[in-house]
């Protein structure tokens, strides 16, 4: 499989995420789109990890090149999990205050 395909797939998924953030007003869906973007990046990281490992394995079958990329994915998941817990807490609080999760209500930055 050429690496290009994975890149394209990731870019498409990422752009779908961006489009979702831009077009939806529901804060929870916006949040989900962000998760989608994170996963697109994760996919690309794993693909590159694989690519580098495959190239190195030609000369040395026992090489561990590529481990770093996968561990990065792992840490991204860790951070994403933490982010989701806090983010959802904020959304819950917002809902409690304004009884809505429409991000257009979040225009307090104006003043």
């Amino acid at each position: 499989m050429p690496i290009d395909y994975y890149i394209y797939l990731s870019v498409i998924l990422f752009s779908i995420g961006v489009t979702g953030v831009l077009t939806r007003r529901n804060a929870i869906i916006v949040f989900m789109c962000i998760e989608l973007m994170l996963n697109a990046v994760n996919l690309l990281l794993v693909a590159f990890s694989k690519m580098h490992h495959a190239r190195a394995a030609v000369s040395d079958a026992a090489t561990s090149i590529g481990t770093d990329g996968q561990l990065f994915v792992f840490f991204i998941m860790v951070v994403a999990a933490a982010e989701v817990s806090v983010g959802l807490a904020i959304i819950v609080m917002m809902y409690r205050n304004v009884h809505n999760v429409d991000i257009n209500f979040l225009n307090r930055l104006k003043n």
């Binding site: 499989m1 050429p2 690496i3 290009d4 994975y6 890149i7 394209y8 870019v11 498409i12 990422f14 752009s15 961006v18 693909a47 990890s49 694989k50 690519m51 490992h53 495959a54 190239r55 394995a57 079958a61 561990s64 090149i65 590529g66 481990t67 996968q70």
Partner: peptide
């Protein structure tokens, strides 16, 4: 955004990801 990024990567060197190569990383 998608088009621009894909277009930007068009010129990159193609590289094969060997899906079933050995390796247990």
């Amino acid at each position: 955004l998608m088009i621009v990024i894909i277009a930007a990567l068009q010129t990159s060197k193609p590289e094969i990801v060997d899906s079933f190569s050995k390796g247990d990383i």
